[in-house]
Structures are given as structure tokens and as C-alpha cells.
């Protein structure tokens, strides 16, 4: 990416302090923003976590998913179907990875790409996101470093901080406006 700054552009010396363990900070912030989160010790136990979430809400095990390599290596139990495609109306639940997570704000960072269609992040009622603990970055700026190290900006890069909401009726916060009603984070120690 070309640098567009010219002489005298102010740097960013000021950042909110994010002390201590990033993963703990991230967990606190994203759950405060209305997401549910479950921590699991390995990829092998992801199906267990996903099943518990879907069972509690009474949803089927049909998932539209992104093309995370990790999802292929997991032995999905009988009854699960995973379809790697764009989301369509009527798809209840999506399962995706993330490109990063941010402790400062408790945000997931998702990017539109061939293996991660953007509709997966916005159309279904339930968005289940798998986050590896090693993906949790301290500050928002750390995401830009990641982008610059790789291939630059994707078509769409979104910070997701909780489920969809609106306060347009009498300033009352109501979850589930147009995007996902539920954001479920499966945090894997990896």
C-alpha cells in the first residue's frame, strides 16, 4: 500500500491502555458487547461447543461456513452438514474463522475473501466465529500492521463488536436489527 502522508502529519502516540492478558481483556469486552463466548482447549472440541450452542437454541446442525483449513481437519459428528458457500436467506447459522481479534475493543476482525464470503458475517441469524487465542491482538493498530504485512486491504474488512442492534425506537437498545441476532465466539487455545 502506498503511504499518502506528507510532512507534518500527526502520528498516533495516544492509545487506550490495554494492560495485562489480551485474551482475558478481549473476553471481557466482547461479552460486555453482547456476544456469548465459550473457551475450548483444541480444534477437536469445537464441534462440542457448536453443538451446545445450537442445542440450547433449538437450531439444526446445518451450517454455512467459510473455508478455514482447520474446519476440514475436524471430525464433525454425524448430523452436522457444513456447506462452504455464500449465505442465503433462510440459512440460520454460519460458522467462520476470523483474521484477527482485538482486545482493546472486544472486536472480531473479518475480511471478505474467496474462502470467506462476506454474507456469512451478516445474513444468518446466528454467527459462530472461531477465534484462536494467538489471533487476539492488543490494539486496533495491530490489525493495520497485519494487513500491511499481507496483501493489503481486502474488499471489505469489518470489526464486529457484538450482535446487530438498534436504539432507534425510544432509545431502547434492541438486539437483532438487520444483522445476526446472536454472535457466538468459540475461543480455541491455539
Amino acid at each position: 500500500m502506498p503511504s499518502e502522508s506528507i510532512g507534518g502529519a500527526p502520528g498516533t502516540a495516544v492509545r487506550p491502555a490495554v494492560d495485562g492478558d489480551c485474551v482475558a481483556h478481549f473476553t471481557r469486552r466482547i461479552t460486555a458487547a453482547g456476544a456469548s463466548l465459550v473457551r475450548t482447549e483444541s480444534f477437536a472440541t469445537i464441534p462440542e461447543a457448536v453443538r451446545a450452542f445450537l442445542d440450547e437454541l433449538g437450531f439444526s446442525y446445518n451450517l454455512v461456513c467459510s473455508g478455514e483449513r482447520a474446519f476440514d481437519t475436524i471430525a464433525w459428528p454425524a448430523g452436522f452438514t457444513l456447506a462452504l458457500r455464500t449465505a442465503a436467506d433462510g440459512d440460520h447459522s454460519s460458522l467462520t474463522g476470523v483474521v484477527a481479534a482485538v482486545a482493546e475493543t472486544g472486536s472480531l476482525v473479518v475480511a471478505a475473501a474467496h474462502h470467506s464470503p462476506n454474507t456469512l458475517h451478516f445474513l444468518p441469524e446466528n454467527h459462530i466465529a472461531v477465534v484462536r487465542t494467538s489471533q487476539v491482538l492488543r490494539h486496533l493498530e495491530d490489525v493495520w500492521r497485519l494487513m500491511r504485512e499481507h496483501s493489503g486491504m481486502p474488499r471489505a474488512l469489518t470489526f464486529i463488536t457484538g450482535p446487530s442492534r438498534t436504539a432507534d425506537v425510544e432509545q431502547t437498545i434492541q438486539i437483532g436489527a438487520h444483522g445476526p441476532r446472536r454472535l457466538h465466539v468459540v475461543l480455541v487455545d491455539a
Binding site: R29, A33, R85, T86, E104, T105, G106, S107, A112, A113, H114, P117, N118, T119, M153, P154, R155, A156, L157, T158, F159, I160, T161, G162, P163, S164, R165, A167, G179
Partner: peptide, 24 residues
């Protein structure tokens, strides 16, 4: 604005869909 450290969605949109994108 709303007292939020970050709103639910903050997106950076950079051009139309890329050659191998499936949506957008």
C-alpha cells in the same frame, strides 16, 4: 455519539469484489 467504544459494525470498504470473491 452513543457511548460505545466501538459500534457493532465498523467496516472498511475498498473497491468492488475481487477477482475470486464469491460475493460483494
Amino acid at each position: 455519539a452513543t457511548g460505545q467504544a466501538m459500534t457493532a459494525y465498523t467496516s472498511l470498504l475498498t473497491g468492488p469484489r475481487r477477482a475470486d470473491d464469491r460475493d460483494g
